[in-house]
């Protein structure tokens, strides 16, 4: 009994200030081999390094402590009143990764699955588990098949082999925290804009076609970027294995147009009618139509305005004369 009182008094002293408390945590958890072991300097450089251990492990109030429950990041990042960023957790709540929306599937990732626990760094930091170079491997832990395909795609090679800072990781399309269901219309439509963030010319010309206009109006039944170019398996157009290469394009068109012929595939899915060098027939058709419209309207609007003026004038004169 006396011992317990001593421990109690000691722990009151130890945990009286957060800084002091943190130091005392390291007494045990700073020892290698301890579970969990926390590398003090690495933790202190992390995004949460300035916080007391008990800020997250709030069920620990002294030593010895019982079983410590899993940290709830949402305490700060979802409902907390302090400066912690919240939108990520709010998006996660809506995501297919959220166990609640996915009816309790316990294999789904929580914050810690991707971010880790003690060594959370800004994603620009190469130590971060969500640093862009590491994202595909991170996701591959649960999605190995997608990773295998992605890593050989033009985007995967640019990121993983050429370190291209503009190459998309999984996040650019799947929206890291939001990860909407891939079958959702809203996501499929949003994806077109995501592609257009980098491929802006292609988005502009796509929007001039029937496909691009129908999707713009919110309907997904027509060809979107990935229907023709592929998604995880996207390759350069000049790659013989591309979905749009000479040997594959017919099959690609036939996904939606089953009776398509080789001639059919000569459709310009990204035509630009103002580009005379590349699309001369289209250019001259557009020019002819423009001249026809301007000419017809110019003649008849002039005709109509003059007619209206003369008619009104004559009628006024007649009334004045009566």
């Amino acid at each position: 009994m006396k011992d317990l009182t001593l421990v109690f008094l000691l722990s009151c002293f130890l945990f009286a200030s957060p800084a002091a408390a943190k130091d005392s945590c390291y007494d045990c958890h700073g020892q290698k081999g301890m579970k969990p072991y926390v590398d003090k300097s690495a933790f202190e450089q992390s995004a949460h390094g300035h916080l007391a251990c008990t800020k997250c492990h709030f069920d620990v109030s002294g030593y010895p402590h019982g079983k410590v429950s899993k940290v709830n990041c949402g305490a700060c990042h979802f409902i907390g009143t302090e400066g912690a960023p919240k939108e990520q957790a709010q998006q996660y709540k809506l995501s297919v990764h959220n166990r609640v929306t996915a009816v309790g599937n316990a294999t789904l990732p929580t914050c810690q699955t991707c971010h880790g626990s003690h060594y959370i760094y800004p994603s620009a930091d190469t130590r971060s588990s969500t640093n862009r170079q590491k994202i595909p491997t991170l996701c591959s832990q649960c999605h190995p098949r997608e990773f295998e395909v992605y890593k050989n795609s033009i985007h995967g090679k640019q990121l993983l082999e050429d370190n291209n800072p503009a190459a998309p990781t999984c996040f650019q399309c799947h929206m890291e925290h939001l990860t909407p269901p891939t079958a959702s219309n809203a996501w499929q439509l949003a994806l077109i804009k995501q592609c257009g963030d980098c491929h802006s010319e292609e988005l502009k010309t796509y929007r001039k076609t029937y496909h691009g206009k129908v999707t713009k109006l919110g309907y997904v039944t027509v060809a979107k970027c990935s229907d023709c170019h592929g998604a995880h398996d996207i390759l350069m157009l000049n790659d013989p294995d591309s979905t749009l290469s000479r040997k594959n394009i017919l099959k690609t068109c036939q996904k939606c147009h089953p009776a398509a012929t080789p001639g059919f595939t000569k459709f310009y899915a990204h035509a630009e009618e103002k580009d005379r060098a590349k699309y001369p027939v289209l250019y001259y058709t557009f020019l002819f139509m423009t001249v026809l419209l301007l000419g017809t309207f110019a003649f008849f609007f002039t005709h109509t305005f003059l007619w209206a003026y003369r008619s009104l004038k004559e009628r006024m004169n007649k009334k004045g004369g009566e």
């Binding site: 076609t209 147009h257 001639g263 059919f264 459709f267 310009y268």
Partner: peptide
Amino acid sequence: EFFGRFMPGWAFNIATVIHSD
């Protein structure tokens, strides 16, 4: 698909411009 048997696919680009304008 029917007209694609007789004409190159870019005829649909031309047709789109004509139809629309």
